[in-house]
């Protein structure tokens, strides 16, 4: 029986896998939507630029030695008084706006992704447990979700922010602020995952394939993660994409309100906050360029989420 053994042990080769992905309905629907392709390109450009910020940014805004107050409040290069070194002008401390946007996007995206991951993991786990266990555990988790959803994200962020200030004092370092942001944004977004996953879990757990696994004595945790989870992640992906956009916006809002990252390590929201002080002085570039970047990023990610939702919904195909 060597022949069959060989056949069965052979795992799917990479080439086959690539072919399967390229032939899938998802890729097909992606290629048919120009808006989606444009959104993907915008997202990719911003994300890659942010990741490569240390390599492509003309200046390092964190490096105080490079800064000179003489260069502050410079308009963009194409305007009169512009300096060719500072393509999009400089801010009040003489930092290059283009460079700070690159570094700021990095912060915004990092916090957004981490917060979404945190919310997703928390929400998926709680949803799986609630849906599969049922009874009191389910009731407790879902009531907690109800209570959670009555608090707006900003309120939770302010609560956690306040707690952390009390714990670490006013002189918190950037590391702590970063994680405070991730925690507070993540905590306000897990409810949607939990509800969705619980709903799908309720459906999946009564399907015969789960019964078949129970019949041979597979442990509940194993059933949850190996059988149920792969079948409930579809809708979660859609939520995660749309939530990523929301998380970035929330972070920007918090930073704009002064709860977020400090101006020494600015995110897009912090930059807009700095810039808005000079808007009426005619120095629009300090706020507008980070604003456009933020809007473009959020819109593009949102469009990707919309496409994913439609593409994964068999009824709309």
């Amino acid at each position: 029986m060597a022949d069959t053994t060989a056949l069965l042990v052979t795992r799917i080769t990479t080439r086959e896998r690539i072919r399967a992905v390229l032939g899938s309905d998802l890729v097909y629907s992606f290629l048919r939507s120009r808006v989606t392709i444009a959104a993907a390109m915008v997202t990719a450009i911003i994300v890659i630029a942010a990741l490569l910020a240390p390599l492509i940014a003309p200046h390092d805004p964190y490096d105080l030695r490079q800064l000179s107050l003489l260069d502050s409040h410079n308009p963009p290069a194409w305007l009169s008084g512009g300096d060719m070194r500072f393509l999009l002008g400089t801010d009040d401390q003489g930092r290059d706006v283009f460079s700070t946007i690159l570094y700021g996007s990095r912060q915004s995206i990092a916090i957004g992704v981490m917060a979404t991951l945190f919310a997703g993991m928390l929400g998926i786990s709680l949803g799986l447990i609630a849906g599969y266990t049922g009874g009191t555990v389910d009731a407790v988790i879902m009531r907690a979700a109800d209570i959670q959803s009555t608090f707006p994200a900003i309120l939770i962020a302010m609560l956690i922010d306040g707690t952390s200030r009390a714990l670490f004092g006013e002189q918190r370092n950037e590391q702590i602020v970063f994680w405070v942001m991730v925690l507070s944004i993540g905590l306000s977004f897990w409810v949607q995952y939990a509800r969705t996953v619980r709903g799908s879990t309720l459906v999946e757990k009564n399907k015969d394939y789960v019964l078949a696994a129970r019949l041979i004595g597979i442990a509940p945790v194993k059933i949850l993660f190996r059988h149920v989870l792969p079948n409930v992640v579809g809708p979660v992906l859609v939520i995660a994409t749309i939530n990523l956009a929301l998380a970035i916006i929330t972070e920007a809002t918090l930073s704009f309100l002064g709860l977020g990252l400090p101006s020494t390590q600015p995110s897009l929201g912090t930059l807009i906050q700095i810039g808005q002080k000079y808007l009426f002085a005619g120095e629009w570039w300090i706020a507008i360029f980070p604003g456009i970047t933020l809007a473009a990023l959020v819109l593009a990610v949102n469009l990707l989420g919309d496409w994913l939702r439609d593409a994964l919904n068999p009824k709309l195909r």
Partner: peptide, 29 residues
């Protein structure tokens, strides 16, 4: 004791390959 279910569309995990489905009891026991 084993069981064969009514709906073969629901009784097989759609995310598993046939060989993993059949191998599950072999591994479990």
């Amino acid at each position: 004791i084993q069981m064969v279910f009514q709906d073969p569309y629901a009784s097989l995990n759609p995310r598993w390959r046939a060989l993993d489905i059949v191998a599950e009891p072999l591994r479990a026991f």
